[in-house]
Each structure stands twice: as C-alpha cells, then as structure tokens.
Design a protein around this nucleic acid. Structure first.
Lengths: 158, 158
DNA sequence: CCATATAGGTCAATATGGTTGACCTAATTA
DNA sequence: TAATTAGGTCAACCATATTGACCTATATGG
C-alpha cells in the first residue's frame, strides 16, 4: 500500500472517530431531558430558521414525516418548541423555540462551539477555513443543505 | 449573533451534512450484500489490523460485544471474514478478511478515498493536512482510537 | 363551486442498531 | 484448584428509521 492510500485510510478512520467525539457531549447533556440526537438536530435547525414549517424541516434533516412527527411532539410536550398555524396559509405549522428551548439549544451549541473553537485556535493558521472548505464540498450535494441555504436566504430577505 | 458564532454554527451544520455524504455511497453499495454500516466498519478495521481479536475490535468500535456478535457472525456466514483460534492463547479468536472480504472492503474504501481525494486535490494547498489535523484533535480523546494506534504499532513491530 | 392538491397527523408493520443483565463454556493463570 | 479472561448467547428493552395507507383541514385552479 502506498503512502497516499495510507493517508486516505487515516482520513476514513478520523471521520468516524471525529464525528463520534463531536456528538458525544450533546448526547450526554440531552439524556437527562429524555431526548436524543434527533431532537437536538430539530432544535438546532429551528433555532437557525425560526418559523420553519414541518415539511421544510424534514427536507433539511432528510427524514420521513413519520420519523419527525414523534420527536416534534415530544419537544412540544416538554415545552421546548411551539407550533403556530401560519396566517398566510392555515395548513402550515410554523415551528419556534420557546425560551426554555432557546436556552437548551444554546447550551448544546455552545459546547460544540467551544470544542471546535478550541481546536481551531490551538491549531491556528487557516485550519478553520480549510476544514470548512472541505466539509462544504461534501455538503454541497446534500438536498437538505440546499434547502437550508434557500430558507436562510428567504429569512434574511424578510 | 456575532460573526464567529455564525461561523461556528456553520461548522455544526457542515459536520452533519458532511458526514451524511461521506457515509452515503458505501451504505448504498453494501445494501445489495444485505449488510449495513456496522459491517462496513468491521471490515475496515479488520483490513487495517488483520488477526485482530474480538475484544480488541469492540474496544476500537466502542460497542458492546453483544452488538458486535451478530454482524460478525453474518460476515462469517457471507464468507467475508474468517475466525481463527489463536495459537498463543486458544481463548482468542483472530479475525481476517477472506479474499472476497478483501475485495469488498477495498471497493468500499476506494469509493471514499476517491471522494475525499477529489475534494482535497480540487481545493489544493494544505487542505488535506489541515483537515486531518482538526480531525486528529477530535479523535485524540477516543479510547477506540488509542486502542487502534496501539494495535497498529504492535502489528508493525512484528 | 367542485375537484384536486397540499400540509400535516397517525396507525401499522417491519427492520436495524444499540443497550444492560445474566449466564454459559473453554482456556489460562495465580 | 480457584479465579480470571475471551467469547458466545438469550432476553428485555429502547430508539431510529422506513414504507404504505388513510385521515382532516385548507387552499387553489378550472
């Protein structure tokens, strides 16, 4: 096996281990709320796009509506999100974080922010930019990512 | 929200989308073999450390032995791995890929290699090095990663 | 105004992925 | 010989997701 192959194998391994570390802390934190990683993802995306509809949210996360429904209801029951009938079309339900939800989401994001920030600053240079560039290339093809960008743009224009 | 926070939120999102793209192709490829991502991980680590024992493998992947047992048996039944009683201690079972297993593993790794290599070369500069540095920092704390490094070193010394 | 489409909810069946606890055999070691 | 270790297996449980089918409410186009 040549050196490039070895390096690429290291990349595969690092992706596995890196992602595991990345999700570890929030996973532990939300345990005591009786929720899981899906719920965290939902909170994250609602925080980025307040007022997002159910359909848009499931397009972003790329799961079926049945898979989203239960976690969404659980978040509602735990008082972490609210659902508001849209006045421009009563079929749509708009999702928002409650104050409690905002607090939890920001705590979870904060932990991950700190973790990544510490690494980026300790490595210095343009490590952050380079890492982002690589991950953007991977994300480019995701339908969910495209949907997210479109909604973000819409939100800014309003 | 300040600019740094926004950038860090982008990082969180990119990790989710990036990992999804990264695992997408192998997931599709192994479907027709009737196996899943766990099996792929097992094949990957056996390929890196031929003759690894069951216990060492589960330390690396960081799952319970019960979670590893079924996939391991399935891989054996499909003729992708072999299990050999170790002659230095008959309690240990050493795992190897069969020719068929080697072929599949290399196909799966190849797809991911190409995917990452294309991104690294298209971005150029030291994007690969920088990306690896960041992921290494995240992986550093993983018990499974430490175990993997120790076994790799052992293997080289033999 | 009616037919159709859309947003969302829900039930059921199915599969996968993982956990912990308990208990077993075989082999090794103190 | 007793205790430990590697590995296997059973059971109960829980979470994550799928597809298919069917429902209501609302909106919209002919």
């Amino acid at each position: 096996m040549n050196e490039e192959e070895q390096k690429l194998n290291e990349v595969l391994m690092l992706f596995y281990f890196g992602y595991r570390t990345f999700t570890e802390k929030p996973d532990q934190m939300i345990e005591k709320y009786g929720i899981q990683r899906v719920h965290h993802r939902i909170l994250f995306f609602i925080a980025r796009i307040p007022g997002i509809t159910v359909n848009d949210l499931l397009s972003i996360i790329e799961v079926s509506k049945q898979a989203l429904n239960a976690p969404l209801r659980q978040l509602y029951e735990k008082g972490l999100i609210t659902m508001v009938q849209a006045d421009y079309d009563k079929r749509y339900k708009q999702l928002y974080l409650t104050e409690k939800g905002k607090l939890l989401e920001s705590e979870l994001s904060h932990v991950q922010h700190e973790q990544m920030k510490n690494i980026f600053t300790s490595l210095g240079g343009n490590h952050q930019e380079a890492w982002i560039d690589v991950m953007k290339e991977l994300s480019r093809v995701r339908p969910g990512q495209k949907q997210f960008q479109a909604l973000l743009k819409e939100n800014l224009e309003k």
